[in-house]
Write a protein that binds this DNA or RNA. Structure first.
Lengths: 219, 219
DNA sequence: ACCTGAACACCGTTCAAGT
DNA sequence: ACCTGAACACCGTTCAAGT
């Protein structure tokens, strides 16, 4: 039994580092991962069935960093703490939200996390149905927001990359058209957007959904 | 001035038809579009700067089908009507939600739509900030939900395609692991999920967010 | 058991050259 | 003004062959 040149987890680590250097999830490739390792691309296919399998493993690795909230807190605070953790884990790993969206939550780790989120709400007195729907709503919102944020960041810290320069041109068009068409609300939104941190934006959205839940509870 | 073989809009139409036949947005390619047209791939690059530009045009074409709600209705009903329309337009066009996410809302049509959504809330008495945040929250939720739905549909109506078969295997894992790990809430969620239509799921989530807004308003 | 190299069927994009 | 063909630099994936 000869010693393996690389392990399962070494590939995952290299993959996450490679992804971090990519401008988009699309730009992430098996060949780029292999280039950072002392093996050929084809070797990765001995360790992982295909690219999707590697993506699933990467998503699980990231999800593993999410810790459960303190169960002694009130449900609102438990939810806030949990999603704050998820938020910071997603922000710490470039394209983490895209990865979660591109991937099926079929692992023990991800399903347990979802189950725990629902259980916080059920323990608070919500029905199973309400709880799972609220979990999905918050998840979709969070994922959408983080993807949006990472795009913005990407476009601002752009090194005049050929691929993203067209997208940058599109972003420049926004205030221009907004002005031409006199879309006053969008103008306001752009202003406020700049005066608020990503974390604040997230918190406001989360509070909105929690308020909806509270309102349901009191009826 | 020789007559053009194809027009701008013919390419967009062909693109939307091509996209409809693709299992994923990833599978959509310039070469596949060209294959359905009497021109070479390279010709598309005379009409569109690049693939991203074509995607933007496709997104705008879809967005153009979204009609504004009746302004005589109460704000809650206006929102519900508007997002119901968006929901059905997204569902009618395969991968529409992915397209919106992959694309910058930089066109007059998309920015006007966003502006109008905010204006409904501002007219109802919400602050500019609250209104634009609520708009973003609902948008993220809707996009996330529709993407989720189209994946599910895609996996169910799968013709044992090589590419999606791995994903299907992942989906099969979900109830299995859920059972092994005794994740009772996820089990419940799966059950309820099947008993509810996509539209119902969407409506429940939207109502939750609207309730959060109402609760804000009354304070 | 683990790895390589070459091959296959795809991509997006460019550009000289045609009409 | 509009289109073509060939080329370039990429992809994911497979598989006989090596150790």
């Amino acid at each position: 039994m000869p010693k393996a040149k690389i392990s399962h987890s070494q590939i995952i680590q290299a993959s996450l580092e490679t992804l971090a250097k990519c401008q988009t999830l699309d730009a992430f490739s098996m060949r780029k991962v292999a280039a950072t390792l002392p093996v050929d691309v084809s070797t990765i296919y001995w360790h992982f069935e295909n690219k999707q399998a590697l993506l699933q493993a990467m998503a699980d690795e990231i999800a593993a960093q999410i810790t459960f909230p303190d169960s002694r807190l009130a449900w609102q605070q438990q939810l806030t703490q949990l999603f704050n953790t998820i938020f910071s884990v997603y922000v710490a790993h470039p394209h983490a939200a895209e990865l979660m969206l591109a991937t099926v939550p079929s692992s023990k780790i991800r399903l347990s996390l979802m189950n725990h989120t629902i259980s916080i709400l059920v323990t608070a007195g919500f029905s199973e149905q309400q709880s799972s729907e609220a979990m999905a709503t918050i998840n979709f919102f969070l994922t959408g927001l983080v993807i949006h944020l990472s795009r913005e960041y990407q476009l601002q810290n752009n090194v005049t990359n050929k691929q993203t320069s067209y997208l940058q041109k599109q972003v420049t068009k926004v205030p221009q058209i907004t002005h031409e068409e006199k879309l006053a609300h969008i103008q306001n939104a752009i202003q406020e957007h700049h005066s608020q941190s990503a974390k604040q934006q997230f918190e406001v959205g989360l509070k909105l959904i929690i308020k909806g839940l509270v309102s349901d509870q009191s009826h």
